[in-house]
Design a protein around this nucleic acid. Structure first.
Length: 225
DNA sequence: AGCCAGGACTGAG
DNA sequence: CTCAGTCATGGC
């Protein structure tokens, strides 16, 4: 993956943000009641629709298995059963267990005292926590500025012609980290807007009409700014 | 009926 | 390092 449009990226990113805001409003993410619930949701939503994640989280709450210690105490079979609706339930049971075992040793509140680079390294060392999950936990649970990108971000930016080639998480994240102020509220809202908008970005057709950014704002087209 | 959703890990080349 | 294969349910 290469960055096609290097010029004025800071201005372009802020203008895109304003466009998304005007289209979708102020979202204020993440749907969870605690940092631990954010982290669980981040793991469970890997390649999975959020509505299925909600079922699994409801199961955990209903089974009174919603603290790290409670989850650690139940059997693997039971954990798999509770996580079943979220899909990949065997994999996710392993991942959730690895995560709770880690934070029983090092509570999230302790980890969250680290700066973003060190916190990110520690989260990435946990089985089942990849770059997007780590950044989601840092941004939405620790409330520190680490930009979250995903396949929606890549798809949108490909349509805009700002990037080309295959999706590369770290390079796409660096595009935001290097060209935006490190503001938690900005990062929070920006990623939320991209995900909300993502449903309108056609997967296969390069000039999908449902992607308003293609048709309504010449500024976003490479070469016009 | 198929397609796909807010990815990550593994093994092979 | 790059990449295909794997993991799995539920809504549209």
């Amino acid at each position: 993956m290469q960055i096609v449009c290097e010029e004025n990226l800071d201005k372009r990113l802020l203008e895109l943000y304003k466009q998304l805001r005007s289209e979708h409003g102020n979202l204020r993410w993440w749907p969870a009641d605690s940092p631990f619930e954010v982290a669980l949701g981040a793991i469970l939503t890997q390649a999975t629709a959020w509505r299925n994640v909600e079922k699994a989280i409801d199961n955990l709450k209903a089974a009174d298995a919603f603290t790290p210690e409670q989850i650690h105490a139940i059997s693997q079979d039971e954990l798999e059963k509770l996580l079943h609706p979220s899909g990949y339930f065997r994999m996710k049971a392993k991942k959730v267990r690895a995560f709770v075992e880690h934070i029983i040793e090092r509570p999230m509140a302790v980890m969250f005292k680290l700066d973003v680079p060190d916190l990110r390294k520690e989260l990435l060392s946990i089985y089942g926590v990849g770059p997007e999950t780590a950044d989601s936990i840092i941004l939405y649970a620790a409330e520190k500025p680490s930009f979250v990108v995903d396949t929606y971000t890549y798809r949108l930016f490909s349509r805009l012609g700002w990037v080309a080639g295959n999706f590369h998480y770290e390079r796409l994240r660096a595009l935001f980290m290097d060209n935006l102020p490190h503001d938690v509220n900005l990062f929070n809202e920006y990623h939320a807007l991209i995900v909300r908008h993502g449903a309108r970005v056609c997967k296969k057709t390069p000039n999908c009409e449902s992607c308003f950014l293609q048709s309504q704002c010449d500024f976003f087209q490479v070469g016009s700014g």
